[in-house]
């Protein structure tokens, strides 16, 4: 396995309910934002964020994270996912 720093990536994975799936949690957050005066809020969808650190070259990391999403991180019946890769930085925990 490569252990060189350049071969470590973080996949920022975002999983959300499919647009056709009702999201009552998002609706409640939208109403709360309206109550606070953010009248411009048209809709809110609540999702899940995962930072997956992988040791692999970029192309392999992309393929492997995609497989992880399909097998476990996302339930394709109700959810969809997207992710981006960035080089891992051990010194600073990156924000989402």
């Amino acid at each position: 396995m490569p252990t060189d720093h350049r071969d470590r990536f973080v996949a920022d994975v975002v999983v959300t309910l499919k647009p056709v799936v009702n999201d009552p949690q998002g609706d409640v957050v939208r109403e709360a934002l309206h109550t606070l005066g953010f009248a411009e809020v048209a809709g809110v969808r609540v999702g899940r964020y995962l930072a997956v650190e992988v040791t692999a070259d970029r192309a392999t990391a992309r393929a492997r994270v995609d497989a992880m999403c399909q097998q476990l991180l996302c339930n394709g019946v109700i959810e969809e996912y997207r992710f981006t890769l960035r080089p891992a930085d051990r010194s600073v925990p990156a924000p989402p």
Binding site: N22, P24, Q25, N75, V77, I78
Partner: peptide, 17 residues
């Protein structure tokens, strides 16, 4: 069973939360 694909569909947060 749904997560395992042994039954179709999925179970979501209750509508009333």
């Amino acid at each position: 069973l749904c997560e395992a694909g042994l039954l179709p569909g999925a179970l979501l947060r209750n509508a009333a939360l």
